[in-house]
């Protein structure tokens, strides 16, 4: 890992400590040897109040590549997560996480987490990542909302 990556990740931890949105959490994971791995974090994203997502806190893993912050972190929800813009593997399709689209080195963890919270209730029908949720979202809202609510219960706070 480059020095830039390491220093930046340390700064991300510090920034998060100083200021993070209510109901969210994020911290580095532990390695087998008991030390903390700054390149792999776990986070929790609460669904927005007043949406069908609000009951859940959704677990994220955030992996920072060695080339971070030139390259974006890889952010995943659990495999099989039901959302039109989430791949079956859990990988999230979000433009700010895509190097060729809107990723900029200045984007912080807080912005990523808020971006994903936003995405939960405002899926982008133009970049489908899985068929079932995308299909239900475009063609059968009732079914979509039922499944989302069920999933929210699964990840209840």
């Amino acid at each position: 890992m480059s020095s830039l990556c390491l220093q930046r990740l340390q700064e991300e931890r510090k920034k998060w400590r100083k200021d993070h949105p209510f109901g969210f959490f994020a911290k580095p994971t532990k390695k087998a040897d008991g030390t903390m791995n700054l390149q792999k974090w776990q986070a929790g994203i609460p669904g927005k109040e007043g949406t069908i997502w609000h009951e859940g806190v959704y677990p994220l893993t955030i992996e920072y590549p060695d080339e971070y912050p030139s390259k974006p972190p890889k952010v995943k929800l659990p495999a099989g997560f039901y959302h039109p813009n989430v791949y079956p593997s859990g990988t999230i399709c979000l433009s700010i996480l895509n190097e060729e689209q809107d990723w900029r080195p200045a984007i912080t963890l807080k912005q990523i987490c808020l971006g994903i919270q936003d995405l939960l209730d405002t899926p982008n029908p133009n970049s489908p990542a899985q068929e079932p949720a995308w299909r239900a979202f475009s063609k059968n809202k009732a079914e979509y909302e039922r499944k989302v609510a069920l999933q929210a219960k699964q990840y209840a706070k």
Binding site: L6, Q10, D33, T35
Partner: peptide, 10 residues
């Protein structure tokens, strides 16, 4: 304190 060789936060 960070061990930069193993990227480990100590």
């Amino acid at each position: 304190i960070l061990d930069t060789t193993g990227q480990r936060l100590l």
